[in-house]
């Protein structure tokens, strides 16, 4: 009987090892798909689905009222035969290039300056930042009024502007567009460069100083190379932004004089919403999407940006 009493307790069932979160480095900060779901849904509903619809529409003829009709490659053939379309692509590229050429040096200089700790720097930086807070539409309306050939500044300052008709000639109209975009978007890129310049380790400057480098050599041999990644980021943003510029053209020039500032994005709007040829508009939009994607990819490849080499390697 006692045996029974002394019976060995059956071995307790093995405690299930509770899965504890591993502290494996690879697991940290790697949430599951569920975390990406809202953004994916959002992107799908507001970017992918419309894009697919635009592709379908580019093979149709539709005036917005009746039922769309399939017309095969008609729109595509027409768009590539259209001299205005071809011109609009060149104009888009020209305006984008002008934007990059004007804004990059300006914003690098401003950004590097704003990264320092001079007197009044914070106040002035805040002032420079203001244009970015205004909507592109508001900015364009204001500049349109300021540059009005009859009631604006050019009408008064004829010694500077000649007949004052800045919107009347292709060269000056493009100049105005490039200038207004520069005025508005330089602060944004300044911000990128300011952050990047702040992140440059001070030891590099100390070393350069010991080697006898002056301020200019420090700028060209330390600051600029260290800003490499920031320059690429900012330039890609400029290119994509430049190719899709629209409001400035709509409000400042309406693509005029004639079709001299009709860039692709504005031409798309004209075809779709003024001529009510949504098929042709969709085709122009797709050409623009393809061109912008191709250019961005080429830039990323050429610059090695996709490999993302750190600028602080070896420090």
């Amino acid at each position: 009987m006692t045996i029974q009493k002394t019976r060995v307790r059956p071995a307790a069932p093995p405690v299930k090892r509770r899965r504890t979160p591993t502290t494996n480095v690879a697991d940290v900060g790697r949430p599951g798909f569920i975390w990406a779901a809202p953004a994916t849904l959002f992107f799908g509903a507001f970017a992918i689905v419309p894009l697919i619809m635009v592709v379908v529409l580019s093979f149709m003829s539709w005036d917005g009222i009746g039922d769309p009709e399939f017309t095969g490659f008609d729109n595509w053939r027409r768009v590539f035969d259209d001299p205005v379309m071809i011109k609009s692509i060149w104009l888009s590229l020209l305006l984008t290039a002008l934007g990059v050429l004007l804004q990059t040096p300006l914003s690098i200089m401003l950004g590097v300056w704003a990264a320092g700790n001079q007197k009044n720097r914070a106040v002035l930086s805040a002032v420079y930042f203001v244009p970015l807070l205004l909507s592109a539409t508001a900015v364009s309306v204001v500049w349109r009024a300021l540059l009005d050939p009859n009631f604006g500044v050019p009408a008064e300052a004829t010694w500077l502007f000649g007949d004052g008709n800045l919107f009347g000639e292709q060269a000056t109209a493009i100049g105005v567009l490039a200038f207004v975009s520069t005025w508005q978007f330089t602060p944004f890129h300044t911000l990128i460069y300011q952050g990047a310049a702040r992140a440059i380790p001070q030891v590099l400057y100390q070393a350069a100083e010991i080697d006898g480098a002056g301020r200019y050599r420090q700028f060209f041999h330390v600051t600029l190379p260290q800003l490499r990644n920031a320059i690429m980021t900012s330039m890609i943003l400029m290119v994509v932004g430049g190719l899709t510029t629209f409001e400035t053209v709509l409000i400042l020039t309406q693509g005029g004089p004639g079709t001299d500032t009709t860039i692709s994005a504005y031409y798309m709007y004209e075809e779709a919403f003024k001529s009510f040829d949504y098929g042709a508009g969709a085709t122009v939009a797709l050409v623009l999407v393809l061109a912008a994607t191709a250019i961005s990819l080429i830039m990323v490849r050429l610059s090695g940006y996709d490999k993302m080499r750190s600028t602080t390697e070896g420090l």
Binding site: D148, P149, N150, F151, D163, G164, N165, L166, F167, G168, G256, P257
Partner: peptide, 22 residues
Amino acid sequence: GKTYDSVKFTNNGSPQLVASGK
């Protein structure tokens, strides 16, 4: 004149030219 293509009626540009005696 020369600037007519940069002037609009819909934003009161051209009526102002007349009203202001220009």
